[in-house]
């Protein structure tokens, strides 16, 4: 699963905010308030997003309508799962606060801490 390109991200944000189906023309009209874009550009990006599996497409008369396959929250969660599975990859080499260990080892740590705090309390 890859992240979005810059324009793809803008368009996905629009579609998530819209909650429902949008045609190319509708997306373009909203985007034109902020930036200069050609109709064909928006159409291509929407079609690419559909091919990549991010958007559902249906035809509405002459034009096509699009809506996101997953909600923004689902997308965020999926991205996050990927980030966290990456963080276990030694090639990525992050500095983790604590590494992996067995439950026995973790229990040993807890015992050492409890013993220390018990001593402090006395």
């Amino acid at each position: 699963m890859r992240g979005f390109g810059e324009l793809e991200a803008v368009i996905m944000e629009r579609l998530w905010a819209a909650e429902g189906w949008r045609t190319v023309r509708e997306v373009l009209t909203e985007l034109l308030e902020q930036r200069q874009l050609a109709y064909t550009t928006v159409m291509t990006v929407l079609d690419n997003l559909h091919k990549k599996g991010w958007l559902r497409k249906e035809s509405a008369g002459k034009a096509n309508r699009y809506t996101p396959v997953m909600t923004k929250e689902e997308y965020g969660a999926a991205q996050m799962r990927r980030a966290l599975s990456d963080s276990g990859d030694p090639a990525v080499a992050l500095l983790k606060f604590v590494g992996q260990m067995s439950p026995e080892e973790a229990a040993g740590l807890r015992a050492a801490l409890d013993a220390h705090e018990g001593r402090d309390a006395r």
Partner: peptide, 22 residues
Amino acid sequence: VTMAEAASASPAGALAATGGDA
């Protein structure tokens, strides 16, 4: 210790044991 317990309970638990370090 709290984070170590969480790490040991997660399925990736036995990948690279660094319990001695902790």
